[in-house]
Design a protein around this nucleic acid. Structure first.
Lengths: 143, 143
DNA sequence: ATATTACCAACCTTTCAAGTAGGTTATAAG
DNA sequence: CTTATAACCTACTTGAAAGGTTGGTAATAT
């Protein structure tokens, strides 16, 4: 499995916020309830999104979270890469992987590189806006 | 990570056998040495390949393993699906996954289905023969 | 008869996803 | 200036699965 719950939840949070943009700051509690995800677990995920400036966090009464940009400005790839350590399909393509001694003669490396590209290209060509709009016309990510 | 060592090793075994097709049956020991993989671990992987008829196994002196078909007849996808439980990028698309109550309204499902298709299409369009030949002309799986 | 090699079942060990628990700091409103 | 709210922070627990070992049994060629 390539995408863990962490990444899937992160994406759902972003979509939730994109769908409620008019309501200013939205508390974690509200998002957790709407998405039926444990508050505490969601907290640890949202923290990553704030640290990477994908979200603004505001403390205190009336506080919560909001997007820092328009939904069109976020690619799914950029969101998932934050929470998923790596989107690489195999260990040897992960960041900081020990360089493999078999690399030069590896029969499978080009295959994995190709797969990696296909995955990343796909995810980088879908934006948050594509996932929010109910009108699906023109969305070529739909199979 | 989508592809575990199990799947990667399985593919390397298949490539190894494809590259030594003239030598009749090749013992596990020889494959393990050439590929620098633990004999015992490899054994458990090869067992799956034999059971699924991707390989022939012959016991006794002069025994070992050989391909049951020509390398062009094996897709990478068919090999990996054997060893990898599932190539699904997310849990909800795995075989036998509990049907999700959010399915009908899920904003992300089409995205995951599209990703799943992209991955499987890619892997089903590369054959063992593509990975063996050193002449890479016409291999569009190479990025 | 013996060496060789596939086949089989059970167990171990480490890692990591997934989730909890319990606090501290900033902010708005009364 | 106190109180409620809500983000922020650190550490721990748990369960499952990847990755691998151990110790055998059955078939085959010489």
């Amino acid at each position: 499995m390539l995408i863990s719950t962490k990444g899937r939840y992160a994406l759902r949070v972003m979509i939730d916020l994109a769908e409620h943009q008019s309501e200013d700051f939205i508390p974690l509690k509200v998002i957790a309830e709407r998405q039926e995800i444990s508050e505490k677990y969601l907290e640890s995920i949202i923290k990553l999104l704030v640290k990477a400036k994908l979200l603004n966090g505001l403390r205190g009464k009336g506080g919560g979270y909001q997007l820092t940009r328009a939904p069109e400005q976020y690619t799914v790839g950029s969101i998932l890469r934050l929470t998923e350590e790596s989107l690489a399909p195999v260990a040897c393509l992960e960041d900081g992987a020990a360089s493999c001694p078999r690399m030069a003669s590896c029969r499978t490396l080009p295959l994995w590189q190709g797969l990696n590209k296909v995955i990343n290209d796909y995810l980088d060509n879908v934006t948050l806006a594509d996932l929010v709009q109910s009108d699906t016309a023109g969305n070529d990510y739909i199979i």
